[in-house]
Simulated assay, not measured.
Amino acid sequence: MEPMTHEELAALPTTTTIETAARALGLGRTRAYQLARENRFPCKVIRIGTTYRVITVDLQRRLATDTNS
């Protein structure tokens, strides 16, 4: 899976799917869902029924922190 570009990250809506967030973070889909179920996903996750949504600004903040470390 290709990492996300800065342009792709900037174009994301207010919330995004856990699959998209996982791609941005370099995580696999299965691992991302596992972390979300365990409340250990590295970004703010909102569960709506059986769907997980990630707050895009939190994802972008996390990626900026990882880049600056």
Score class of each variant (00 low, 15 high):
1 M>V: 09
1 M>D: 04
1 M>Y: 07
1 M>W: 08
2 E>D: 12
3 P>I: 07
3 P>T: 05
3 P>E: 04
5 T>M: 03
5 T>D: 11
6 H>Y: 10
6 H>K: 14
6 H>E: 13
8 E>V: 04
9 L>K: 05
9 L>H: 03
10 A>W: 04
10 A>F: 02
11 A>N: 11
12 L>D: 03
13 P>W: 11
13 P>R: 04
14 T>P: 01
14 T>E: 15
15 T>P: 00
15 T>D: 02
15 T>W: 08
15 T>F: 11
17 T>W: 01
18 I>G: 01
19 E>N: 09
20 T>N: 03
22 A>Y: 03
22 A>C: 07
24 A>E: 03
25 L>C: 08
26 G>D: 07
26 G>H: 09
28 G>V: 05
29 R>A: 06
30 T>Y: 08
30 T>K: 12
30 T>A: 15
31 R>I: 11
31 R>Q: 15
32 A>D: 00
33 Y>P: 00
34 Q>V: 05
36 A>H: 10
37 R>P: 00
38 E>Q: 15
39 N>Q: 12
39 N>A: 11
40 R>S: 15
41 F>H: 04
41 F>D: 01
41 F>N: 02
42 P>D: 04
42 P>T: 10
43 C>I: 09
44 K>W: 05
44 K>R: 15
45 V>D: 04
46 I>E: 10
48 I>A: 14
49 G>E: 07
49 G>R: 11
50 T>N: 14
51 T>F: 09
51 T>V: 13
51 T>Y: 08
51 T>W: 06
52 Y>P: 02
52 Y>C: 09
52 Y>N: 13
53 R>D: 00
54 V>R: 03
55 I>S: 04
57 V>I: 13
57 V>R: 14
60 Q>I: 15
61 R>K: 13
62 R>A: 10
62 R>N: 08
62 R>C: 15
62 R>M: 14
64 A>L: 15
65 T>A: 14
67 T>G: 00
67 T>P: 00
68 N>M: 14
69 S>W: 12
